[in-house]
Simulated assay, not measured.
Amino acid sequence: MTTSEPNEKQLLADIDALRSQFPQTQDLYREVCVLLFFRYGLTPTTNKLYQLVRKGSMSAPAEALNKFWEDLRDKSRVRIEHPDLPESLKTAAGELVATLWSSAQGAAQDGLETLRSEAQAQVAEARQAQATAEADRDTARASHARARQTLEQAHIRVGELEQALAARDATIAAMEGQLHAARGENAGLLQKLDDARRDFGLELEKVRTSASLAEERFRAAEARALMEIDRERTAASKLHKEMEGLRSNAEQAAERHRTELASLQEQLGNYRQRAGELEGNLKAVTASRDLAVDDLRAARSLLEDKHAQSVRTESLVADLRLQVEEAQRKIEEVGKANKPSRTPRKPKAVPQ
């Protein structure tokens, strides 16, 4: 904003303040003329006055404006009355004093314009600083929003990791149950294998006992056969066949037990392989759970870092807000310090 373009809001505010001080229409228009001419450096016109005040008829601002110019001319005209001075000297002296008054008024007006320019430059600089601070504040708010969004995403990630960890723990528990069941089943199979071995030993012992008894009977029969070869030949042959049958049965029973033993050993190998696979799966799931725990710790560390960044961002916003308030206070102090007087001082008349 330049000096030829006054602050419209400030001008209207000053006029509103004058309304309460000067309720009479002519007095109000006169004070507005003084305000425009001496404070804002504007030449008052009838239309301008009526647009700003909007009180009374159109003749009211014209009358007040004429009265203002007459008063201004009277104040700027200096009369020198002395009985001993010639008229020409009186006129020259009056013109000289009027010229000095006009020069002083112009110098004062120039100083006022300089002060006004400096004040407006300071105001513009302060507003620029305020705009920069507001931009920094908006940037900090955006960074804070992004940090909060990252924080919410980290919370969501932590929840997902906790859910995944709970699911994996449940899976591990289920696999441990399966492994426990497999171990129980393996123990049962081992017990069955021991029972089969024990039964096979008992059956083999029975066969051996039967063979021993048969062999003893055979020897007795053979002894009797030696005594009665002819008579007992048929009986000996029958006894021999009976012994062969017992041996065949014993061999078949032994073969059958060998087959069952091989089958049980094969099942035992399969269950041992299954137990090894379950232990491998358990190790893999345990490693996955450890990775999930590491991810959870990293997410919690990131969450703490984002929280610390959010605290620093809020501190920066508070500092910027204090700087903006300080700049506004300085602007108000400059405006109060450079506020000009409402009416010019009347020059002293030359003493008679």
Score class of each variant (00 low, 15 high):
E314A: 10
K192F: 07
H257D: 04
E232L: 15
R197A: 13
A253G: 03
L303S: 07
R197F: 04
L303R: 14
T209Y: 04
N270H: 04
K241R: 09
E260D: 08
E205S: 14
L264G: 05
E326I: 02
A292I: 15
E277M: 11
S248F: 10
H240L: 10
G201V: 11
L189R: 02
R289P: 01
A187E: 08
R289V: 05
E244K: 09
L202N: 11
A287P: 02
L204A: 15
E325F: 01
E232R: 13
S212N: 13
Q191S: 14
S263L: 03
H257P: 00
A250H: 00
L302Y: 07
L302R: 11
R274E: 12
L322P: 02
E255R: 13
R217H: 08
A221F: 02
V311P: 00
E266K: 03
L193Y: 11
R208N: 02
A287T: 11
F200Q: 15
R208H: 01
L193P: 03
A284N: 04
A221S: 05
E314T: 10
L204V: 12
V317D: 06
D194C: 10
L204E: 14
A298G: 08
A327R: 06
K206E: 14
A318V: 10
F200I: 04
S212Y: 06
G276A: 15
L268N: 02
A250V: 00
A220T: 05
A221M: 12
S210G: 06
H307A: 14
